[in-house]
Design a binder for these strands. Structure first.
Lengths: 344, 344
DNA sequence: TATTATAATGTGAGCGTTTACATGAAATAG
DNA sequence: CTATTTCATGTAAACGCTCACATTATAATA
């Protein structure tokens, strides 16, 4: 008897070869306790010999686990997401779960459907990196009691089971205070997308630092952006056009800071001699540009790791309440800031 | 009768509600021709009303299509991959296939297993972005007659059913010729990972351009790198240490070019006044750094698109032979090159 | 109107697993 | 040495769907 089919090795083939029932093979696969060591060995050997690979579909259909978790991200262009995923990967490497990445930016409308599908058995748990408040399907997820954790997302005033974020307020404060310590008094601020908690928090950090140091907040120094590079450029232009332009500019993220640097140069000014620039995120490129960008490090990779740990916990103890975890942010001093002219 | 289960709507629920057999519902889902328009409408309406979502697992188990394709990438940190995926996404938006991204860098050893799994029914087709020659599972894929296309991969001397790449030789030639036209005679070259066809091709393009312009090739001007930034730095240092250093340096990719720029500055020299630098890829950041990098544009996004189109064709006509498609590369002149000192 | 081709729908089997339950063998107790 | 418990394994029924085939309703032809 030849196998003439496209010859996938199934649990049954293994069973036959190992002279046991397929249930026993299944038990071995799921490391069930009730299998004699001898049998277990024989089956495992057979599996190896035959090159058996479990069929995920069948597995999950039959009600078992899928052995994989999903990450849903808006897109993959920015180093930001890449870092987070690196962390997730690293942490997952220790368990034997597989990772599946889904992008959602393609069709925002599909998002809900996507998530429904995922929760329907493609993955055992979900890691969500979603900028906008995704209230629609979060509801679905919660209803189904499906394990998920939110990364870097602070839906304002909402109550999520598990979320890991960074200390944005603290970061905003540190950055601003650093500039103040250098001697800057007029500090421009370019916000992120104000729908987002993190953007808000960074702004609040900036404000607090000013207050703490008895510097009056001036609305004209705050430019509303959306986290994209062009906003950095435009914002810096607007700020530099002011009758009394700022001597330093704090951009809510690194890519906007790069836009700022462009704008400063475009005006024939230099960074940091004429204008100091500080960013937020510490994406890989920020150390590569010239001048190397002083910024606030958000532990992206670590956020990925921690989120994964949280999900793993959630997976083993579904009822566990985890809550919010905030990772510290850190000032990274490089070359894009110095004391203001007048101050030297 | 209440549904007290976790109440997933199945094909059977829909069938009951719409007063047809479940086979008919299945037909509607798969847009089979043999369904009366009236019935089809009724069923579709019922599906919508009940919020039916097909179960992928079951579908693929039963031997049908999964309605999704997979992309297997080494990692996601570099903008390079992001661009390609953006293209895939865009093209897929037109069809209604879903996209699933898998990273493989986590455990190279798992790669084979992964692919086996995928081919086993998780997706209908595979897009592979894999730097190293993935001979092991390519074999498996071919054997199973599983539809896949390789992106930016030229396995040396191998014969793959479908691959889309960029005109690397042409790009190498163009870049080198541009430098020569500017007046450079001593042009340093930093290679990519020489296991890769694309790296080889770029080098060959460089050589040909020299030959065409009657410039002798000097082995000391060629530094072997691996596509990572530090190699750009080290390579440039080595080249600049030469008794007669080059007046221009051509790095096999943009991130190494950034390393080169660093190294040049580190020596107290300036780009492009003292040393011209040219890259390859045209990743988004290359226009953002200072000086903006002159480079060769690899149409990454388009490669993603084209690859997807190829896969879609393969999916509808499994027997179709497609072969290799090479997208043109283009010289992007920015600010990092100028005529050499002596030449002015 | 009877006969045949054709379109529309239903039936049943099976995809590769897991899992509750049934069975049988070995081990302990009475 | 039989009765009872424990351990190891087998059996059968799902899981939600697709697909080949059987059946029935409808239209076309003689």
């Amino acid at each position: 008897m030849e196998k003439n089919k496209s010859s996938e090795v199934t649990i049954i083939d293994v069973a036959a070869e190992a002279h046991v029932s397929y249930a026993t093979v299944s038990r071995v696969i799921n490391s069930d306790i009730h299998v004699k060591q001898e049998t277990r060995d024989r089956v495992q050997q057979t599996m190896r010999r035959l090159g058996y690979v479990a069929n995920r579909q069948a597995r999950s259909l039959a009600g078992g686990r899928t052995n994989s978790i999903g990450v849903l991200v808006p897109d993959l262009g920015t180093g930001y997401i890449g870092e987070i995923i690196r962390g997730i990967d690293a942490e997952l490497g220790l368990s034997d779960l597989d990772l599946i990445v889904y992008t959602t930016h393609r069709t925002a409308s599909k998002e809900v459907n996507y998530v429904a599908n995922l929760a329907k058995g493609m993955v055992d748990g979900l890691l969500l990196v979603l900028p906008r408040s995704p209230a629609d399907f979060i509801g679905t997820l919660t209803q189904r009691n499906f394990p998920f954790v939110l990364i870097d997302h602070q839906g304002i005033g909402q109550d999520f089971p598990a979320v890991v974020g960074a200390a944005n307020w603290q970061g905003g404060f540190k950055a601003t205070e650093y500039l103040i310590k250098l001697g800057h008094q007029r500090i421009g601020f370019i916000t992120g997308w104000m729908d987002l908690g993190c953007a808000l928090d960074r702004l609040e950090g900036y404000r607090s630092a000013l207050r703490t140091n008895h510097i009056a907040e001036e609305p004209e120094l705050i430019y509303e952006g959306t986290f994209f590079q062009p906003d950095g450029f435009k914002g810096a232009c607007a700020l530099l056009d002011l009758p009394t332009p700022p001597t330093a500019i704090f951009a809510s993220n690194d890519v906007m800071a790069m836009g700022v640097i462009d704008a400063v140069r475009n005006r024939g000014l230099r960074v940091p001699e004429d204008v100091s620039v500080i960013g937020f995120d510490d994406i890989p490129q920020s150390s590569m540009i010239h001048p190397a960008l002083t910024t606030i490090n958000q532990p992206l990779e670590k956020m990925g790791r921690v989120a994964t740990q949280m999900l793993l916990e959630l997976l083993s103890q579904p009822q566990k309440q985890i809550g919010r975890i905030e990772l510290p942010t850190e000032l990274i001093v490089r070359d894009s800031c110095q004391a203001p002219r007048a101050f030297k």
